[in-house]
Simulated assay, not measured.
Amino acid sequence: MKFIPYLSFDGRCREAFEFYAKVLGGRIEAMLSHGETPAGAEVSPGWQDKILNAHLVTEAGELMGADSPPEFGSAEQKGVSISIQIEDEARAEAIFNAFADGGTVTMPFETTFWAKKFGMVTDRFGTSWMINCAQAQ
C-alpha cells in the first residue's frame, strides 16, 4: 500500500502539473482530459480540455490530480500540505522559491530549531507545501 496525494484544481491542472514536473524534476505519466473520455458528456463544453486525471512521478514520490468542474463542487484545497523532506539545501531553497513565485509564503524558508531550513508556502495553484531540510543526526 502507498499514499498518493490527489490534488483538485479549478481548471489549471495541466499548467500546475507541467510546473510541478519542471520544479520537482519529475515526469508526467498521464494527462487525460474530460473530453477524451466518456465522462466528457458530463461536463460543460468549456471543460472538455480540462484534466480528468493527471499523474506525476518524481524521485521522491507521486502526485495525482484533476480539474474539478464547478458543477461537481469546489476545487479548493484545504487542510492538507505536501511535505517535501530534502537534504540538499540549495535544491530545497530553489523549490521553495519556485513555489513562492506568484504564491503566498506562510513561513519563510529559514533555520528552525528542528531543521537546517524549513518553510511553508501555498503556490499559485492553491497547493500548500512544506519544505524541510532536516539537521544532520
Results as ranks from 00 to 15, higher is better:
47 W>Q: 11
114 W>H: 09
110 E>K: 02
44 S>Q: 12
11 G>K: 07
63 L>F: 11
64 M>Q: 14
91 R>L: 07
61 G>F: 04
27 R>Y: 05
64 M>H: 07
10 D>W: 03
12 R>T: 15
11 G>F: 09
48 Q>C: 13
100 A>E: 06
92 A>L: 04
64 M>S: 11
30 A>C: 12
93 E>K: 12
87 E>N: 12
91 R>P: 01
51 I>R: 01
78 K>I: 10
110 E>C: 01
27 R>T: 14
49 D>L: 11
18 E>F: 03
51 I>K: 01
108 P>K: 11
102 G>T: 00
96 F>S: 11
32 L>A: 06
26 G>M: 01
20 Y>K: 05
38 P>G: 12
30 A>D: 15
73 G>N: 03
100 A>F: 05
54 A>M: 03
90 A>V: 08
116 K>N: 04
58 T>V: 02
111 T>Y: 08
50 K>C: 15
16 A>R: 07
64 M>F: 06
96 F>A: 07
105 V>M: 12
70 P>D: 10
77 Q>K: 12
99 F>K: 02
70 P>H: 04
110 E>N: 08
40 G>S: 13
62 E>W: 03
36 E>H: 10
17 F>K: 01
67 D>N: 11
67 D>F: 04
26 G>S: 09
75 A>Q: 00
94 A>K: 08
109 F>L: 11
109 F>E: 07
51 I>D: 04
29 E>L: 14
103 G>N: 08
57 V>C: 06
112 T>Y: 11
85 Q>C: 01
30 A>I: 10
61 G>M: 10
59 E>Q: 02
51 I>C: 07
101 D>T: 04
58 T>N: 03
66 A>F: 04
79 G>N: 13
30 A>Y: 13
13 C>S: 08
65 G>I: 01
23 V>P: 05
55 H>E: 11
16 A>Y: 04
45 P>R: 15
24 L>T: 03
55 H>I: 07
52 L>H: 02
93 E>A: 05
39 A>K: 05
14 R>M: 14
72 F>Q: 12
89 E>L: 14
